[in-house]
């Protein structure tokens, strides 16, 4: 734009009109994208619901066979039917993860707060994951936390977050490795609880630290990747932590293990 253009009212008016048209167009695009996004979310929700029902039937039928209710199976038959049950269960977990994600996107998740010991929840999640960890000769230990003040939070949601972080640690740590959970109080008056879930696993390159929390994102997204999943676990974990007004992040280097951290405010008031 030249000096004379800038001073010419007619040119300015024309320019303003053009900008207004552009802004309008941009708004249309935004609206269109928003509506497409919400359609996609609705589709994801519907399809996940609809996938669940036949899958539930398949699992139930397979369990009936597995438990010998329709006659004893030989060892090979039982192994095969067990495969159907386990595969079905894994698929169901993935569908549920998608549904949780859709609900969290639609702000349909509400917290039900109560006072509880977070160390106790960690121990429950550890116990639940013990068989899986034992298979890979991994140890899961809780470093401290017996004398922590109780948190006022949603127990199920924080259990979900811990389950996800510990599950990931198991998935991405080589046999013989170590997983730990530790706590510390932060802030002048200890108004925030910092929870750490660490492992000696493969680690995450610095440029991928944000990516791992992004929906559907996986560091290795190739079809041949060794670890499969929806790519939603950490997105959901972040959402659940943020609903508690906390933050979640990772500190890691490739080949040097990962340390995931999240905070839970301790000054949350009872409603």
């Amino acid at each position: 734009m030249s000096m004379s253009d800038r001073l010419d009212p007619a040119a300015l008016k024309k320019r303003l009109k053009a900008l207004e048209a552009q802004a309008k167009e941009a708004q249309c695009t935004i609206d269109e994208l928003k509506s497409r996004d919400s359609l996609k979310t609705q589709f994801l929700s519907n399809i996940s619901h609809d996938l669940r029902t036949p899958l539930a039937a398949i699992i139930t039928h397979a369990e009936i066979l597995r438990d010998g209710m329709l006659g004893e199976l030989n060892t090979k038959q039982r192994e095969s039917v067990r495969g159907i049950v386990n595969g079905g269960q894994q698929l169901l977990d993935m569908i549920d993860e998608i549904l949780t994600y859709v609900r969290s996107e639609g702000d349909q998740i509400k917290l039900t707060r109560a006072e509880f010991s977070i160390a106790e929840v960690v121990d429950q999640v550890r116990m639940l994951n013990q068989p899986l960890a034992a298979k890979k000769h991994l140890t899961i230990e809780r470093l401290n936390g017996d004398d922590l003040p109780p948190v006022y939070a949603d127990r199920d949601k924080l259990r979900h977050v811990l389950g996800n972080l510990i599950g990931n640690a198991i998935k991405f740590t080589q046999a013989g490795g170590r997983i730990w959970i530790g706590f510390s109080l932060r802030g002048g008056n200890g108004e925030e609880l910092l929870v750490e879930v660490g492992d000696t696993g493969q680690g995450i390159a610095r440029e991928h630290h944000e990516l791992v929390f992004r929906e559907f994102a996986q560091v290795d997204a190739s079809p041949s990747r060794p670890h499969h999943g929806t790519g939603l676990g950490l997105t959901i974990a972040r959402k659940l932590v943020e609903l508690h007004d906390g933050t979640i992040w990772v500190d890691s280097e490739l080949g040097k293990g990962s340390r995931f951290f999240f905070t839970v405010p301790l000054d949350a008031r009872r409603e």
């Binding site: 029902t53 036949p54 539930a56 039937a57 139930t60 039928h61 009936i64 209710m69 329709l70």
Partner: peptide, 12 residues
């Protein structure tokens, strides 16, 4: 309302 599910339950 899903016959897939009720069929399985009926057997069970």
């Amino acid at each position: 309302d899903s016959t897939l599910v009720t069929d399985a339950f009926q057997i069970l």
